[in-house]
Design a protein around this nucleic acid. Structure first.
Length: 258
DNA sequence: ATGGTGGATGGTCCA
């Protein structure tokens, strides 16, 4: 079972890249963030014609998540259990046989200390509570997506200059760490120890060309899944294309059939 | 310290 996550920054603009990529990579599951599309505008037919099932949960202009899968989910969860209609569309989960996949677009937070930052911290706590209430650590659970947090300094191009700032501040790292402590393993770090491996580069200041990135997109697996995770990597090729997303896909492979 | 770019939108907001 191969699972990928990719913040596409507008599925409308990036649909050709996504269709090309799934055609080549053939993941069993692709979790997408920032579709920026209401559900009536989702390109369902284009995706289904490639042989993937799709679930989607979006809104106008901002946010929006989707999950493409080879098999049809047994269960779909759109937002947290207490979700209001007005909540931003940032969470979509599916049950695929024995596997639960939780796709998240964690709020960016904008700037440490501002109201959006508080919202980010609260949102992470909501996610932690949802998972700890809905699941046991011996189940096959993946939480993945754009976490908007670089968990360690080796995930950041200039950790000294950026210390304490948004995406790597202590408080947001601590919030995410409390989720990890429920029982998740960062699959990428099972297979790579090096610094300088990133999943996102700002569009500005030629950040990609200058290798100024961060690893903020993650695939976290519960212990029983982590123990059968055979590979994990970041495919930076789509970031080199014309009109790319600012994020690259992250992929993990497991010795598991779904 | 500021502003750089890109997407959605229709003046700015968000990242």
């Amino acid at each position: 079972m191969q699972l990928a996550t990719w913040n596409v920054n507008s599925l409308n603009v990036r649909l050709p890249h996504v269709l090309d990529w799934i055609g080549k990579q053939k993941p069993d599951v692709l979790c997408i963030q920032e579709t920026k599309l209401t559900d009536d505008k989702f390109p369902k037919e284009a995706i289904e014609s490639t042989g993937y099932h799709c679930e989607f949960f979006g809104e106008k202009a901002y946010n929006g998540v989707a999950i493409l899968s080879r098999t049809t989910p047994d269960q779909v969860q759109k937002g947290f259990l207490d979700a209001q209609d007005t909540d931003s569309k940032r969470m979509l989960a599916v049950q695929l046989g024995p596997l639960k996949v939780i796709n998240v677009y964690i709020p960016n937070g904008q700037e440490v200390g501002c109201s959006k930052y508080i919202y980010k911290l609260d949102w992470i706590e909501k996610l932690r509570r949802y998972i700890s209430e809905q699941h046991q650590t011996n189940e096959l659970v993946i939480v993945c997506g754009d976490f908007n947090i670089a968990t360690e300094d080796r995930d950041v191009y200039d950790p000294e200059a950026l210390a304490g700032q948004i995406l790597l501040s202590d408080e947001e790292r601590a919030a995410l760490e409390s989720l990890r402590q429920w029982g998740f393993v960062d699959t990428f770090r099972l297979h790579h120890a090096d610094a300088g491996l990133y999943s996102w580069w700002d569009y500005r200041m030629m950040a990609f060309r200058r290798k100024m990135g961060m690893r903020i997109d993650h695939i976290w697996a519960s212990e029983p899944l982590a123990s059968i995770c055979t590979h994990a990597w970041i495919d930076i090729e789509p970031r080199k294309l014309e009109k790319p997303s600012d994020h690259a896909p992250v992929i993990a492979e497991f010795s598991l059939e779904v």
